[in-house]
């Protein structure tokens, strides 16, 4: 599978502060790549570079061989979707209206009835079919996150193996209960199978071990680990970069990690 996103020697500097520097990595369609790292490591910034929202100070970020920041917003929208961390919503808008926006209809003033099934289907996939007409502001943080995930899924619904899309999820599991954390990761896998390059920022290494094909670990704006999760996330690695003591266990499902506590 060819590279969907390719980041070469990318730096992102604000004033004198280097948020990211010397970042090299690739993301392929059909794979789920988890981005891990302590708070403030530059994970969200990396995602925003990939989405084209930010322009790298130096180096390049390419999507299918083209420089992302050279592409216009409309064109990018058909090739990748971004779900940001917790957003605050000030005005009344229903869950269905949010999801419907992902369809990217332009000139049509009236909503098309054939879009209804797309919206309903997407809300069903995130277990939100009972909340179709609910105001987003009355939903809990986790429910809201699931609606926003449904919107992003709708935007990349036409991804195919020969016409891949990027799906960039910034901490999609941060406010979710256990069931829906796993459901979200399952949906990420499904999207990858359909032909998306899925990049998902996570804090739970076990979700990465269980669902991701690759993991990229950022620390202080640099890539400090890049490879297969079970190989990268060793006890020593977790101690060095995440400052926690861990035991690694193996069973028939693969390896998992138990955090004993903060590094002493």
């Amino acid at each position: 599978m060819s590279d969907f996103f390719e980041v070469v020697d990318a730096d992102y500097v604000v004033g004198r502060k280097k948020i990211l520097f010397g970042v090299n990595c690739v993301f392929r369609a059909g794979e789920v790549t988890a981005v891990l790292g302590p708070n403030g490591a530059g994970k969200s910034t990396l995602l925003r570079l990939l989405s084209g929202e930010l322009r790298p100070t130096s180096g390049s970020v390419k999507m299918l061989g083209r420089e992302v920041c050279e592409m216009n917003a409309k064109e990018l929208a058909t090739r990748r979707a971004l779900m940001r961390q917790a957003v605050d919503i000030t005005f009344p808008i229903t869950a269905a209206e949010v999801v419907r926006m992902g369809i990217l209809r332009e000139g049509v003033f009236w909503d098309l009835p054939e879009d209804d099934s797309v919206v309903r289907n997407a809300l069903e996939r995130v277990d939100m079919s009972d909340f179709v007409e609910r105001d987003m502001r009355s939903l809990s943080g986790g429910e809201r996150q699931r609606v926003l995930l449904a919107r992003a899924l709708v935007q990349v619904r036409n991804a195919k193996i020969d016409q891949p899309c990027g799906l960039l999820l910034d901490e999609p599991t941060s406010a979710l209960d256990l069931e829906h954390q796993h459901q979200t990761m399952f949906l990420a896998r499904e999207s990858a199978a359909a032909g998306c390059a899925v990049v998902v920022v996570l804090h739970d290494p076990n979700l990465a071990l269980q669902y991701a094909d690759f993991v990229i670990v950022l620390s202080n704006g640099q890539v400090c680990g890049n490879g297969i999760p079970s190989e990268i996330l060793s006890s020593d690695f977790m101690q060095k970069y995440f400052r926690v003591d861990t035991d690694i266990h193996e069973d028939s499902f693969g390896s998992f990690l138990r955090v004993r506590g903060r590094r002493r």
Binding site: K74, L76, I89, L104
Partner: peptide, 21 residues
């Protein structure tokens, strides 16, 4: 109008949906 609708769920999401902010 459509751009403003997208902005209701955040600048990042609006940009994601192709709104030239």
């Amino acid at each position: 109008a459509r751009g403003l609708n997208a902005l209701m769920i955040g600048e990042g999401e609006a940009f994601s949906m192709g709104v030239n902010l």
